[in-house]
Amino acid sequence: MSLTRSWMIAEIPGPTRANVITKPEIVAALIRRHKRPLLVVGSKITTDIGGESMADYVIRLAKAANIPVLASLPALKVFREKGFEPAAAMPLADIGARLVDPSWQGVDGKGPHDLVLILGFRYYEQWLLLSGVKHFSDTMLVSLDYRYQPHANWSFLNISLEEWKKNLKAIIEKFGG
């Protein structure tokens, strides 16, 4: 088992913890293997990465890999300021309630999402959302945040924003973006 530790030191989950995304190819493969991926994005995508923001990378990834974006309400505001309209927007609380509902037909009404890629929330918000979805659904969960999220199935380790940027660029490139 890898030496994984939550970013918030006391946030110790339990018997299961996320596999580590050691290279961007893993994320690309996961996206390709699933039929109905979804990007769930929170308020912290304003995080600055050398003159760009996390939101810019999310938009590029969504466009390149053709993944619908479900924005939480604060993220909606950020996306609209950037001229990007997510597939849907709803509060984080509502996102959680829908992701654990097997009858929810997704943001486009065409069926449940089998892969959720998530990033951009406060660490503990994302930790708790992932915990809720992990326990009460079978959806594959991938944290694309730069801090290790043990409740996902897959997560980056605690990495620098520079490293995160390199990884995201590589993932986007895998889809021709």
């Binding site: 110790i12 339990g14 018997p15 299961t16 309630a97 708790l128 809720g132 992990k134 326990h135």
Partner: peptide
């Protein structure tokens, strides 16, 4: 309806435990 977000995957309130309650 309740939407639960467990803080801990286990229960440790009695000597049966810790019990893994995941999934």
């Amino acid at each position: 309806k309740p939407f639960y977000m467990p803080f801990c995957d286990v229960c440790c309130l009695c000597t049966f435990g810790k019990c893994d309650l995941t999934k």
